[in-house]
Design a protein around this nucleic acid. Structure first.
Length: 736
DNA sequence: CGAGTTAGACTTTTT
DNA sequence: GTCTAACTCG
């Protein structure tokens, strides 16, 4: 068989990785070094050269997008040869496993997946139910803590709290939350992984089955694995599995959510004989951009060490723009994009990357003003929208009445006169009886302890759900062998209409009702296109359950089509893995990037620096970096020094686009924040209303000011000369 | 009970 | 500045 296509066009290191003999491998793949290519070609090599059956290969990624990309690229390399191959996310694979072995895992059949929003609601209720002060035990923090514990593989019983009262309370919350989920048949994201891991540990037969099956494990973005995911890999590999991990310690930017870069080093210790292969040749960026990236990342300690290089062009220097404020920055960026489009380019070639989501606003405003199409990545995704979750809550409730998360959401949306008082009473009863909210309603109605109005409202709500349930199954007889009722799309349509959701949003006068109704209609569309995978069928799921799981695990894209010709706006985090011809790295200011909170701890600062590295290496041809001297943050004007990361780029690689008027000395370096200190300061060394004197114009009052540092200008209303704008640094004003 | 109002928060994000 | 969540009044 001709396998030259698997190696042709690869460099030596890539070739070595693709065709490596049996064993464990750590592929340190620098940015733009052809990582996905190596991964897919490796799978091709295993199946076509080594004769490994595809079903023996498990390829794990973090995002659905990456898994999708992997699948489609595999099709190009091993046409039709991927039958039986497992490609998926950690969560997706765990989910499938649990569907198949729900009984052994101690779950209920048809359990549903809880997204983080639902999770927080439940925890909030648990905290309230325990009579705890929400201010002292914020549900947000409790959720974070519980997830953290789960990610470390810990159950309430295995957490040491050594009489620490606060920790103990969090453990209690964890316990109560667990019970709640178990009873309602709900599983959160971390739970998927934890259960699957526990299933393997406690059921040697199940484990052996999967160890025997998946003898080749390939893990993408290995530096982002958390403790549990790594434990997962180790258990699954056992003593016979061969593990091929691909990652880049310099691009580890998810430490704050539990990812452990240390896993990379740990891997070398845990898998004896593991060989490290470095992919250092970059096929993406100009050498200037790479030099900058290398110089910045070199400041981090404890790296495994890699030096990107390219035999490509030097390219343009990096353009640095010091803006007066965030509007000036946006104006500058949009101007460059307009020029680029006018000359040759497509809007989609340009990406604006920022540290935090709030920064997109200014750019959006200017883009709208200049009539440039744009797309903001991130943000609310389709299945996370309130109206979509409302509709799905009814479906969940129809398929499992004990799903309290769904109950709470559906019960009074649209409003039907069931208020907090009534719900509190129901929650109290449910807690007391250890029952679901649904059962609590039935009990309360039976006992007649409810006010008349609430009772009627609840009765009709119960009737509504029962009616939906019957209709879905087909035929009022509700016999199991009755002809299938409505198909999925019809079920959803039915739910949206009969629950009054559509009317509710149609009459919603908060302005966005129309869009919400459109989304509901789109949900019906999505459902009509939905097809169960063979795994879903295998696991014995009905169409509705499969669809609901899909909705939770794959929340869908944010908005619009990805391939329209749009300027791309996103955070640095979401830019990882992408590349653009023109990149604008904006908001490079101390306190913003690196963020204020990260400057206090060395390892967090290093993570920020990796983020800078990720940002720089997104650019293919041209990189612009900018900072604003003054920026509105949380509603107030703040002054900021340029980011230290700017100062870490060798000056000879930089073109300053707005050289200061007052270059008295080559002050380049010390404009950038050095070590600590700095960040944002309260603006204005002068006060508005301050009386001042000017050698030429005489006396006046400062009425306005803008900019900062050498650029700060003040508007002075002079007695004799009227109002004037002056550059503060030159004006030689004396305070009176 | 529901609509309108005001007090707090606010890195980064996938599943 | 803007969003959400809790609070208050009709």
């Amino acid at each position: 068989m001709d396998v030259s296509h698997l190696l042709d066009g690869l460099n030596d290191a890539q070739r070595e990785a693709v065709s490596a003999p049996p064993g464990h491998y750590l592929i340190l793949a620098g940015a733009g070094s052809g990582k996905t290519r190596v991964l897919t070609h490796r799978i091709g090599w295993l199946t076509q050269v080594e004769g490994v059956p595809p079903w023996a290969i498990l390829s794990v990624t973090f995002t659905n997008k990456a898994a999708g990309e992997m699948r489609s690229r595999l099709d190009g390399i091993v046409p039709g040869g991927t039958q039986g191959l497992t490609v998926g996310t950690f969560h997706g694979i765990a989910h499938r496993l649990l569907r198949r072995h729900w009984r052994e895992a101690g779950l209920v059949e048809g359990f549903q997946i809880l997204d983080s929003d639902d999770q927080q609601r439940i925890i909030k209720r648990v905290v309230a139910g325990m009579g705890l002060d929400e201010a002292r035990f914020p549900p947000r923090q409790a959720a974070w803590q519980i997830n953290q514990w789960k990610d470390e593989g810990k159950r309430p019983d295995s957490i040491e709290h050594r009489d620490h009262p606060v920790t103990r309370t969090f453990v209690e919350i964890y316990k109560a939350y667990e019970q709640q989920c178990q009873r309602a048949g709900l599983v959160d994201f971390a739970e998927l992984l934890l259960r699957a891991h526990e299933l393997w540990l406690k059921d040697p037969y199940v484990l052996k089955h999967y160890q025997d099956r998946w003898r080749y494990l390939l893990i993408d973005e290995f530096q982002d694995t958390n403790t549990l995911q790594y434990a997962w890999i180790r258990v699954l590999a056992g003593s016979t599995g061969q593990v091929f991990v691909v990652g880049d310690d310099d691009q580890a930017i998810y430490g704050w959510r539990g990812a452990k870069v240390e896993n990379v080093q740990q891997f070398l210790r845990d898998f004896p004989g593991a060989k490290t292969i470095r992919l250092e040749q970059n096929y993406r960026s100009t050498s200037t951009i790479l030099k900058a990236a290398n110089a910045v990342i070199a400041r981090n300690g404890g790296r495994l060490g890699k030096q990107l290089w390219t035999d490509g062009d030097e390219g343009d220097r990096i353009a640095l723009y010091a803006a007066y404020n965030e509007q000036d920055e946006a104006r500058f960026v949009i101007e460059r994009i307009r020029e680029y489009i006018a000359e040759h380019g497509n809007a989609r070639d340009c990406a604006i990357l920022y540290r935090s989501n709030a920064q997109s606003r200014n750019f959006e405003e200017q883009l709208i003003q200049r009539n440039l199409p744009y797309r903001v990545y991130g943000g609310l995704r389709f299945f996370e929208r309130a109206e979509i979750k409302d509709a799905l809550a009814y479906l969940r409730l129809a398929s499992n009445r004990h799903d309290d998360a769904a109950f709470e959401r559906a019960v009074n949306t649209p409003t039907r006169g069931i208020g907090d008082r009534t719900l509190d009473e129901l929650r109290r009863r449910a807690r007391q009886d250890g029952s679901s909210m649904w059962e609590a309603v039935l009990n309360e109605i039976a006992m007649g302890s409810l006010a008349g109005r609430a009772k009627n409202a609840l009765r009709s709500f119960i009737a509504l759900i029962d009616e939906m349930h019957r209709t879905f199954r087909g035929g009022d007889a509700a016999a199991d062998d009755a002809p299938a009722g409505l198909d999925l799309a019809e079920q959803i349509e039915h739910a949206i209409t009969h629950t009054g959701l559509r009317d509710f949003y149609e009459n919603d006068k908060r302005g966005n009702g129309e869009a919400r109704v459109e989304n509901l209609d789109e949900l019906v569309n999505v459902a009509s296109r939905f097809e169960m995978t063979p795994e879903d069928t295998d696991a014995g799921l009905n169409e509705l359950s499969a669809f609901l799981s899909h909705a939770a695990l794959e929340a869908g894209e944010g908005q619009g089509e990805a391939w329209d010709d749009c300027v791309q706006l996103m955070t640095l985090h979401s830019a990882k893995g992408l590349e653009f011809p023109i990149v604008f790295l904006v908001g490079m200011e101390e306190g913003l990037f690196p963020s204020q909170r990260s400057t206090e701890e060395e390892n967090r600062l290093e993570e920020e620096r990796r983020l800078a590295y990720v940002g720089i290496t997104r650019a293919r041809q041209k990189l612009y970096v900018s900072h604003a001297e003054s920026r509105r943050m949380h509603g107030t004007e703040m002054l900021a020094r340029p980011s230290r990361f700017l100062g870490e780029i060798p000056p000879e690689l930089i073109d300053e686009l707005r050289p200061r008027v007052q270059v008295s000395r080559p002050a380049y370096a010390d404009r950038f924040a050095g070590g600590g200190g700095g960040g944002f300061e309260e603006p204005m060394p002068v006060k508005l209303g301050q009386r001042v004197s000017h050698p030429k114009f005489g006396e006046g009052t400062i009425v306005s000011a803008e900019g900062a540092g050498a650029h700060m200008r003040v508007q002075v209303n002079f007695e004799d000369e009227g109002s004037k704008w002056l550059v503060y640094a030159y004006a030689n004003l004396t305070a009176l």
